[in-house]
Write a protein that binds this DNA or RNA. Structure first.
Length: 134
DNA sequence: GCCAACGTTGGC
DNA sequence: GCCAACGTTGGC
């Protein structure tokens, strides 16, 4: 079991939308590193959802319910998506500001590679986030 | 709205 | 294959 974090612009598709839909195909990733991470996801892996732009906080968790398959929205070829099933909303969202001020999360890819949209989390990072999220 | 970071493209 | 130009993302 591995842990991941995906970014979403809540104006386009928010965690709230995922909860409403129960599950969704996480499509539209057009970056090789992000694609490799999507491909490495296993069924049952936990995927935390971060809202960029206006909110800038980790808001909830989801699970991989289908491993990588060809992105049906693809405009080129070779891109993949996974199916995510909504999990829990965090009681307290974990803001970027909070993440930045938490030493245990100083190495998180969210900060180190600000433009990456799908990234792995270490066990320690995941547990730390869970704790902060309540 | 600006701009830094950084990925991608294209000319050479 | 290098690197400058360009486009996009995302924080501020």
């Amino acid at each position: 079991m591995r842990y991941w974090l995906v970014k979403s612009d809540p104006d386009e598709y928010s965690f709230h939308d995922l909860v409403r839909d129960k599950k969704t195909n996480w499509t539209g990733v057009r970056n090789y590193q992000a694609k490799n991470n999507l491909s490495a996801m296993a069924k049952g892996d936990v995927v935390l959802v971060y809202h960029s732009q206006t909110e800038k906080a980790i808001v909830g968790s989801s699970k991989v319910s289908k491993t990588a398959f060809p992105d049906p929205t693809e405009d080129g070829e070779g891109w993949v998506c996974v199916e995510l099933t909504a999990g829990k909303s965090f009681k307290n969202v974990i803001t970027l500001e909070h993440i930045k001020s938490t030493p245990a999360l100083s190495e998180i890819a969210l900060i180190k590679q600000s433009r990456l949209s799908v990234m792995p989390l270490t066990d320690e990072q995941y547990e730390c986030i869970l704790e902060l999220g309540g």
